[in-house]
């Protein structure tokens, strides 16, 4: 399959890339790993007139740990995150989810920044980052801003990123001691996309949940916090009954936007979301120790 024609630029700095985005605003798309954009272009679902390939820019691929947390360069690949000891020890669910994206070849190319910017409704990374919390750093030619991940995913394939902005970094907060994390996904066997995936980040103190962030992907039109589940968990002693009740509300926020396709009906997706919420919460609580 052949994509539409486009003009191609391979800038070697973020400044040069953001200048190109300003010059071709509305016409240009950013090419990162390309594993969502190129398939869409081949199907002519996307026909950008200009591609700004940020793959030649040095210094966008890194994982830096500090006392505040971890900063991840936007061009860091799934494979690099899955293999990173910093990610494995600070955010085990991100390492685990990265290792479960698609297949080895895709993990070598696909990036954290690309995954967030594309915001696939069945992508793994958006839900995981939403559960961890943190900020997306976006740069234009003139300015830099940080977008709270809770305000980043807007709609199906839509984020609050402007068309002259490039994601340069993802800033994740240090997790409180006593925090356990888990990602539980039911995947479509051919594509490995999530039919449903639930990410859980839970802080436990003396058997009681002091904080919880739960996010769901695959079931709705975008990665979404399961706030009712979080509310049921917070402040409670984490008995099996409380966890069961919390998991049973995991699809509540998605009622109006549940996906339905050849792989799973809306009803089945809602059910799977509750089941995997239970698994993710159980695993996160166990990991919290």
């Amino acid at each position: 399959m052949v994509t539409s024609n486009f003009d191609y630029f391979a800038p070697t700095s973020v400044d040069e890339a953001t200048s190109l985005l300003s010059r071709y605003r509305g016409e240009a798309k950013v090419l990162a790993g390309g594993h969502s954009l190129i398939p869409m272009m081949k199907l002519r679902l996307a026909e950008p007139g200009v591609l700004v390939d940020i793959g030649q820019i040095e210094g966008l691929s890194y994982i830096n740990e500090s006392s505040d947390g971890v900063a991840i360069g936007s061009m860091t690949t799934y494979r690099e995150m899955a293999n990173s000891s910093v990610i494995q020890s600070n955010y085990p669910l991100l390492a685990d989810a990265s290792a479960k994206v698609a297949d080895l070849q895709v993990r070598n190319r696909g990036t954290i920044g690309g995954s967030l910017a594309h915001s696939d409704p069945a992508g793994d990374i958006p839900a995981v980052i939403l559960a961890i919390g943190g900020n997306v750093v976006a740069r234009t030619r003139r300015s830099t801003r940080e977008i709270n991940i809770d305000r980043f995913q807007v709609d199906l394939l839509t984020t609050s990123l402007r068309d002259n902005e490039i994601i340069t970094e993802i800033k994740l907060p240090a997790l409180a001691s006593g925090t356990g994390t888990a990602y539980s996904k039911f995947h479509q066997p051919a594509s490995h996309y999530a039919i449903t995936g639930v990410a859980a980040v839970i802080t436990v103190s003396g058997g009681t949940c002091t904080d919880a962030r739960i996010a769901v992907t695959g079931a709705g039109d975008k990665a979404t916090r399961a706030r009712r589940t979080e509310r049921i968990l917070k402040g409670k002693e984490l008995t099996p009954a409380v966890i069961r009740r919390a998991a049973s509300r995991a699809a509540a926020e998605l009622e109006d936007s549940l996906n339905e396709d050849i792989h799973a009906s809306a009803e089945y997706r809602a059910h799977l979301t509750q089941v995997h919420a239970g698994y993710a919460i159980d695993q996160a609580v166990a990991a919290a120790g």
Binding site: L31, H35, I38, P39, G55, D103, N108, R109, A190
Partner: peptide, 30 residues
Amino acid sequence: CDTSQCGACTVHLNGEAVKSCTVFAVQANG
């Protein structure tokens, strides 16, 4: 498949396995 799934087009790009139907030749420059 030409849709990034079947892997028949796998080659190594700078030593890493990639699906060459999902990489533009210009991205392999250098």
